[in-house]
Design a binder for these strands. Structure first.
Lengths: 198, 198
DNA sequence: CCATAAGCGGACCGCCCGGTCAACTTGTTA
DNA sequence: TAACAAGTTGACCGGGCGGTCCGCTTATGG
């Protein structure tokens, strides 16, 4: 599989150009950004796009894979931080920051078929579970919260600020803090539903 | 404006059929549900759709208006409830329930041009502000939370459960409870950003 | 019950999209 | 530097979309 002879120099450059242009274009126009526009933005012909990525979905998958890997690496690194509570908060902060700079959340579901993505994402999810377990053991968050809970809530701060036109760029911090307060042991009320699994 | 001669009986029936079919179709397929499919589902010709709603956006606007009105009426009613804290929670529960039954959140931005919608929505937002003020005065939620905060957080429970495949239908209640715990006075930490305005 | 206008339907239009392809250009390697 | 494979390009294709239009049907009021 993937004999992977190295790309020609110009081809490699074009591929990188394309990935960046596509990310920008998707961030600006959403899922319906057209392949033609992406090609124009990257300064290449439309045919070149399809040479590198057989379908539009493949292009999306490549972008998603990049981002998941970055986040996963950060999470792994934070597993060694001294304070488990702040480590978790830092991870959530970084995730929100990544999304604030470029909101590509609507691309997530695209890569569910590509094994490389589900694998990388699974690894990242496992890391989050570890971060959460550490924080819980340390008493930084309440007992009835699971890693899955945190995975789900992770994206909420950016989501809610999306409804504010011309929101200050750091507004998501307000809602991350608010939600994180809900995760703390103090003042916790019993939850009406069991946690889900992914 | 709108001389509004009453609709012929069959036309009124078709209009209602169309609205229901469109809501179902959008809920199933998202924004890109086609007008042709909506017409088929309602059992009418495509031309009939455009007779009632000059553009697809007008159709969307009509749906959105309906839902906003329903929610606004409920909020107004809850202003008279005895306990302000549970009144607010009940409102949030109802909003989440509406969205759980049929997620049409992606249609929201469509009606921003239609004055009737922004007016109705503004009224509903004002009601939420009143509900929140009452709850805050009563000590049910922390001092640094505004009505706008609640408006933004309102949709988060459904949003986060959207990431769970085959989620139990009441899972949103878990996250509503969790977020609501973050709004409570107990264990509140200072928030890093001022509240936004809409 | 009939005349009439309100309502209906679906073929049709132009547009834009994702994807293909064959002619052309260019990096690579011996 | 020559020869070839790798890469590029944009015209082109089929299809689906929102929206139009006009001949037909039908509810309605006198």
């Amino acid at each position: 599989m993937t004999p992977d002879r190295p790309l020609r120099a110009d081809a490699a450059r074009n591929r990188a150009l394309l990935l960046a242009a596509a990310a920008d274009e998707f961030a600006e126009k959403g899922l319906e950004a057209s392949v033609a526009d992406i090609a124009r933005r990257a300064g290449v012909g439309k045919g070149t796009v399809f040479r590198h990525f057989p379908t539009k979905d493949d292009l999306i998958a490549a972008i998603v894979l990049d981002r998941v890997e970055v986040l996963g690496a950060l999470g792994t690194h934070l597993l060694d931080a001294p304070d488990p509570g702040t480590a978790l908060l830092e991870f959530l902060t970084a995730a929100a920051q990544q999304r604030q700079q470029q909101d590509l959340s609507f691309l997530q579901e695209a890569g569910d078929s590509l094994p490389a993505i589900v694998e990388s994402r699974t690894r990242m999810y496992q890391t989050i579970h570890n971060l959460v377990d550490r924080a819980r053991d340390h008493g930084a968050i309440r007992d009835d919260i699971t890693g899955t809970d945190v995975i789900l809530l992770m994206c909420a701060p950016n989501y809610v600020t999306g409804y504010v036109p011309d929101a200050p760029p750091d507004l998501w911090r307000r809602y991350l803090a608010l939600i994180f307060d809900g995760l703390r042991p103090e003042g916790a009320h019993p939850l009406p539903q069991p946690p889900p699994t992914l």
